[in-house]
């Protein structure tokens, strides 16, 4: 499977935020999107997830067959928000997402164990700390299978130990032939991940955007 973006540009509120961005990710590869605030990292991820329309350019997922016709169908999107309801327990939240998203992979209790929340699955989500909430959201990536993970600042609020565990999870996902596109300031602990540097615009001109292999 291969995810390719060609001469992509994105706009927000009628303004072009980035333009002419091209990259490709193949199975087992990770792409780290880096850049200062306002460079369009989140916009790029939202375009990949099909939540925003690209202002120009093309996006394609090839080799996904009938099961994964496009990126939207084949992706997990972990945004700034955790997509969990504070009034429901952690388990209820995850069971819902597993049933709603389909393609069940691991069971909810296994996923909770993987992120180290096995003891507090019965608690309402609202009682969890920021880091625990993020881990519960990461557990959502595990309960349903998706080959493409789109992660927006995935480690925000995580401590060192959890970061390490999450890096291990991502490596496992890549070993199984998955793909990761992550927007981040922090190192994610993925060796050999390629980087896409997005520049902030100045004076209304586009800063050059380069993709380093």
């Amino acid at each position: 499977m291969r995810l390719a973006a060609e001469a992509l540009s994105g706009e927000r509120g009628g303004e072009v935020i980035f333009s002419d961005t091209s990259f490709a990710v193949a199975s087992g590869e990770a792409l780290l999107v880096k850049g200062p605030n306002g460079a369009g990292k989140t916009t790029l991820l939202r375009i990949l997830a099909g939540l925003l329309r690209p202002a120009a350019g093309r996006l394609a997922l090839t080799g996904g067959g009938e099961q994964w016709p496009d990126i939207r169908a084949a992706c997990h999107y972990l945004g700034h928000f955790n997509a969990m309801k504070t009034a429901l327990t952690v388990e209820e939240n995850l069971v819902f997402w597993q049933r709603f998203l389909g393609q069940a992979q691991t069971t909810v209790s296994e996923a909770l164990e993987t992120v180290g929340l096995e003891d507090i699955g019965y608690l309402p989500f609202g009682y969890l700390s920021t880091g625990q909430r993020r881990r519960a959201a990461i557990a959502r990536l595990l309960v349903s299978h998706r080959p493409v993970w789109l992660l927006d600042e995935p480690t925000a609020g995580l401590d060192r130990a959890s970061e390490g565990r999450f890096a291990e999870l991502m490596r496992g996902h890549l070993r199984e032939g998955g793909m990761i596109v992550a927007a981040t300031h922090l190192p994610l602990g993925l060796e050999g991940a390629r980087e896409l540097a997005m520049g902030a615009r100045r004076d209304g001109h586009d800063a050059p955007i380069r993709s380093t292999p």
């Binding site: 939202r46 997830a49 997509a83 997402w97």
Partner: peptide
């Protein structure tokens, strides 16, 4: 809380 994004993607 971000649930809407996931519903749109689904």
């Amino acid at each position: 809380d971000g649930s809407l994004d996931l519903m749109l993607i689904a």
